[in-house]
Simulated scan of single mutants.
Amino acid sequence: MKDNKSSNGVYWLVLGVVGALIVMLALFFSALLNNYEVLDKGKLLDYTSGFVYKIRFFDSYTVFIEPEHRLEGDVFNSFLMIGIAFISLTYAFLIAQIKRDGVRERSFFMYITLFFGMIFLAADEFFGIHESIGHNMQFLTSLPLVKRPDDFIILSYLIPVVAFLYFFRRELMSNRGTLKAMGGVVGFFLLASVSDLLTLPVEEAAELGASICLVIAILLLGSTHVQQAVRLPVSSN
């Protein structure tokens, strides 16, 4: 009994440390992305033909960077979303492999749905899909309270999100920690929305916070579902 309690303590300690490191890393990148100035850019170095940026961070540190993409929070956030997608795919695979009676197929399909949903959101974040759609549907600005057409496109995303939450509500409520983390997702999402409307400088940080909370929620929820599946009677098939 003591060994089990000790193992659980180590387990939660490791999860806590990993979670803290993820939060610290995200905050670090968020701080970098909001405190830099591009001093020069182009073919600045004689020994390379690459496009190089000369950047000063926090008005103190000057470095040369040769990125494949512009240094933006959207890029890092899209990477987080891709990570969430493949975490979901991993849990779907594990649940499918545990051949036990009573394993709900709904859990499997929930993670598959999450995988494709997060892949789409990552692509949207990286390539600006909703902005591009909005630019070609400018008639939407004639609707009440719609100033930018892409705002209406983002609002329409709530339809599949609400449908997902309703259909998989029992699966999502199987872990209290998940509910708290999902509350963080909603809170950061609302903060990002308000920041976008009022042009406040915390929109990107809020989006990162929402993604981090979603990572935590999926890890806790997937762990619960796998544990439940393992404890069920072995299938006779």
Results as ranks from 00 to 15, higher is better:
Pro144Lys: 06
Gly128Met: 02
Glu131Val: 08
Phe127Ile: 09
Arg169Tyr: 11
Met1Tyr: 13
Val17Arg: 01
Phe79Asp: 05
Gln138Cys: 10
Met24Leu: 15
Tyr53Trp: 11
Gln227Thr: 09
Ile218Phe: 09
Phe86Leu: 05
Met1Ser: 12
Arg231Thr: 05
Ser60Gln: 07
Leu13Asp: 10
Pro144Met: 03
Leu200Tyr: 09
Arg231Asn: 11
Leu214Met: 12
Lys2Gln: 14
Gly73Cys: 10
Ser132Ile: 09
Ala31Trp: 14
Gln227Ala: 14
Val38Cys: 11
Glu131Thr: 05
Ile153Ser: 02
Thr90Val: 14
Phe189Gly: 15
Gly102Lys: 06
Leu179Ala: 13
Gly183Thr: 07
Pro160Asp: 00
Gln227Asp: 15
Leu114Gln: 02
Ser6Pro: 09
Leu197Tyr: 15
Leu45Thr: 04
Ser174Ile: 12
Ser7Trp: 14
Val202His: 10
Arg170Ala: 14
Thr48Val: 03
Pro149Trp: 00
Leu32Pro: 06
Phe164Val: 05
Ser195Thr: 13
Lys43Pro: 01
Gly42Trp: 09
Glu66Lys: 11
Leu21Arg: 13
Arg170Pro: 06
Asn4Met: 15
Ala31Asp: 15
Ala205Pro: 00
Lys99Trp: 09
Phe164Lys: 03
Asn8Gly: 10
Val234Gly: 08
Thr141Glu: 07
Asn237Ala: 12
Asn34Leu: 04
Ile119Phe: 04
Phe86Ala: 03
Ile22Gln: 05
Ile112Glu: 01
Leu190Trp: 13
Glu66Gly: 06
Pro233Met: 10
Val23Ala: 10
Phe126Trp: 06
Arg148Ala: 08
Pro233Asp: 06
Gly83Ile: 05
Arg100Ile: 02
Leu44His: 04
Gly134Asn: 00
Ala122Asp: 02
Phe51Arg: 09
Gly42Lys: 07
Lys147Phe: 14
Phe28Asn: 13
Leu208Ser: 03
Ile153Val: 12
Leu80Cys: 06
Val202Asp: 04
Ser30Glu: 12
Asp151Phe: 12
Val75Lys: 06
Ala85Phe: 01
Asn77Ser: 07
Asp150Met: 12
Leu221Asp: 00
Ile153Lys: 03
Leu220Tyr: 07
Pro233Tyr: 10
Leu94Ser: 07
Arg100Cys: 02
Gln138Asp: 12
Thr90Cys: 11
Met137Val: 02
Tyr53Phe: 13
Phe152Asp: 00
Ser156Phe: 15
Ser88Gly: 04
Tyr91Ser: 07
Met110Asp: 01
Ala26Cys: 15
Glu68His: 08
Asp46Cys: 02
Leu221Ala: 00
Met110Cys: 07
Ala92Pro: 07
Gly102Cys: 05
Ser195Gly: 14
Ser211Tyr: 02
Lys41Ser: 08
Arg170Ser: 15
Ala205Ile: 11
Gln97Pro: 08
Lys54Leu: 03
Gly16Ile: 09
Ile112Cys: 08
Gly16Cys: 09
Gly184Ala: 04
Val215Lys: 00
Glu131Cys: 06
Ile153Met: 08
Ile65Tyr: 07
Val14His: 15
Asp40Glu: 10
Ala123His: 03
Phe168Glu: 02
Ser193Asp: 11
His130Arg: 06
Leu121Lys: 00
Phe57Val: 03
Lys147Gly: 11
Phe152His: 01
Met173Tyr: 14
Phe115Ala: 05
Leu179Phe: 14
Leu71Gln: 08
Val215Trp: 01
Glu105Phe: 13
Val38Thr: 11
Val234Arg: 11
Ser7Ile: 14
Phe29Val: 12
